[in-house]
Design a protein around this nucleic acid. Structure first.
Length: 270
DNA sequence: CGTGTAATAT
DNA sequence: AATATTACAC
């Protein structure tokens, strides 16, 4: 009597995420998304507060970057193209830069006020969902607790504190420290994506950076940096770009479980 | 409806 | 292993 337990295979309906096609009109989305942040705070973080884009005519047509070059049909020109709107996004890769922004946001909000939605808004990284932040926040809290307990615990045996993301030099246990960073301004949300099947890069040992290193050389523009300007102020915040990468978890004995990952690039000063 | 937490899934 | 997803309580 053995019931064959059917493991629901994940439908091959990924390969695209409509978040680049169906959304990013900053003024189109629900206005309540940005109402929870005080303009002061938003300004400090360089978040585009509402639809004010008085950028001195720097980006008249932001949509072109968002459009998907139809030339990416590695499919051969057939098959899946309208798999409904139930597409799964690739897993988010929490790069140190992205995590930095997360920690910054949490630190500036104060642990008490740091809730997923607000954190997400403060981070100002588009493509980032509330679930992403919530999941990360959960892990982050566990990490903070570990550190607290560890400090109060006489655990003598050389037990090195387990890092959060490889290294986590940032302590955000303190409450709101008002830090008004002299940010200049921001620009529109420019998403740069690049689909690739790079597998993994060589030359990396065990560690979280095994798979999220620098993006392929094709993905390092539209970072909002002023071209060769010594007086270039702070690079505009919000989103710099994103790319998709296929990586694997356990490369040995597991059969190579590969999945798509989404790596977002916040413009980091770090 | 949004959040916190634990359990579970991929 | 790192994230996602779910279930449930609040």
């Amino acid at each position: 009597m053995r019931e064959d337990v059917e493991v629901d295979e994940e439908p091959k309906c990924f390969a695209r995420w409509d978040w680049e096609e169906q959304l990013p009109s900053p003024h189109e989305l629900t206005p309540l998304s940005q109402a929870l942040i005080t303009p002061d705070l938003a300004l400090a973080f360089g978040i585009p507060s509402s639809s004010s884009a008085p950028t001195t005519g720097a980006d008249p047509a932001p949509d072109d970057v968002l459009r998907r070059p139809h030339s990416d049909d590695l499919n051969g020109g057939r098959g899946e193209e309208e798999p409904a709107r139930t597409l799964k996004r690739p897993r988010l890769v929490w790069t140190p830069q992205l995590h930095k922004r997360f920690v910054d946001a949490v630190a500036h909000l104060g642990i008490k006020n740091a809730v997923p939605k607000t954190i997400m808004q403060l981070m100002g990284v588009d493509g980032l969902t509330r679930e992403n932040v919530a999941s990360h926040l959960q892990k982050y809290r566990i990490y903070l607790n570990r550190m607290q307990v560890q400090g109060l615990n006489p655990s003598p045996p050389s037990s090195a504190p387990q890092p959060f993301l490889g290294r986590m030099p940032v302590a955000a246990l303190q409450h709101h420290q008002h830090n008004t960073a002299p940010l200049q301004q921001q620009q529109q949300q420019h998403q740069y994506y690049h689909q690739t099947h790079l597998g993994h890069f060589p030359g990396s040992g065990p560690g979280f950076l095994t798979r999220n290193m620098q993006p392929p050389p094709a993905t390092h523009r539209t970072m909002g940096l002023v071209p060769g300007m010594g007086s270039a102020p702070v690079p505009p915040r919000s989103t710099a770009g994103a790319y998709v990468n296929t990586s694997e978890w356990s490369g040995r004995g597991d059969g190579g479980a590969r999945r798509k990952e989404l790596t977002l690039f916040p413009t980091g000063d770090d």
